[in-house]
Design a protein around this nucleic acid. Structure first.
Lengths: 143, 143
DNA sequence: CTATTTGCAAAGATTTTGCATAACG
DNA sequence: CGTTATGCAAAATCTTTGCAAATAG
């Protein structure tokens, strides 16, 4: 399971350093959640094992993002968040609550028709990446 | 026309300082474009008139965003961009090219059905704000 | 007049980078 | 072994803030 992820790293000529393994583990254990760099860094550190540098986490996430292993979502007033692109839910989208910052997801099924229309009307190929849709979750319903 | 914008400021109990007027003018003259703080700052400064502080531009845009006069879009690797919410196109969405960074817009008509579905399926009220949809424009079509 | 707003410079927050050292393959 | 990756600290970026002076209403 998680070994599939390690495979992906190899396929992209990335060395399997202990740091990268630890980061992957953390991402895997928290799949479905959106983690900030700082959080990942602390989780890795708290695992007791040898420490890791913040810069390494930044560099690693940049790399992982580049090879499509993770998705980064850029927040308005807080650090970016990252999540593993798990295979059976590679295509989903983020509903971001403007009030509490909570991130919900919806599947690509709901969006796929929308994407088709965009492709036709705007000659724009929507990426297989989460869209960011701002609004208000049920708890914070717009005033 | 532009006076309507000044009206909005008054309605929100914001004083009409020369700095705010100049910023509004710049936004108006560039409506439909997405401007960075630095650009707005330089445009105001280059108008010859009395100078303006960078902090004032930041504070003003934060305020304008809060009252819904403008939309801010947060970019991944560059400063945020701002644009005036012009009345006849208040509801539109951003198609952001991952390669060249170009920002296209689509109207809310295309998206409204999508929003309805989201409201129903996810109990999430999509804000009257641009959604961010990443992908590849016709020039940079995905490799 | 008084509450807001401004400008400046200093501080914050987040992210990137240079470089010597370590270590994967 | 040679290339790639790491850690640290320093730098770069973008944005926010404190405070005294200025000013809109």
């Amino acid at each position: 399971m998680i070994d599939q992820v390690f495979e992906i790293l190899k396929e992209n000529n990335l060395k399997l350093t202990p740091q990268r393994k630890e980061i992957v583990k953390i991402l895997w254990e928290n799949r479905g959640h959106h983690l900030e760099i700082e959080v990942i860094y602390n989780l890795v550190a708290s695992k007791g094992k040898k420490c890791i540098g913040l810069a390494t986490v930044y560099r690693t996430m940049e790399l992982f993002n580049k090879i499509g292993l993770i998705s980064r979502i850029t927040m308005e007033k807080s650090p970016a968040k990252y999540e593993l692109n798990v295979f059976d839910k590679l295509n989903h989208h983020h509903l971001i609550c403007l009030k509490c910052g909570q991130v919900q997801e919806i599947s690509d099924d709901i969006a796929s028709e929308f994407k088709t229309i965009i492709a036709e009307e705007a000659d724009f190929k929507v990426a297989d990446k989460p869209m960011k849709i701002y609004g208000y979750c049920s708890k914070c319903r717009e005033p």
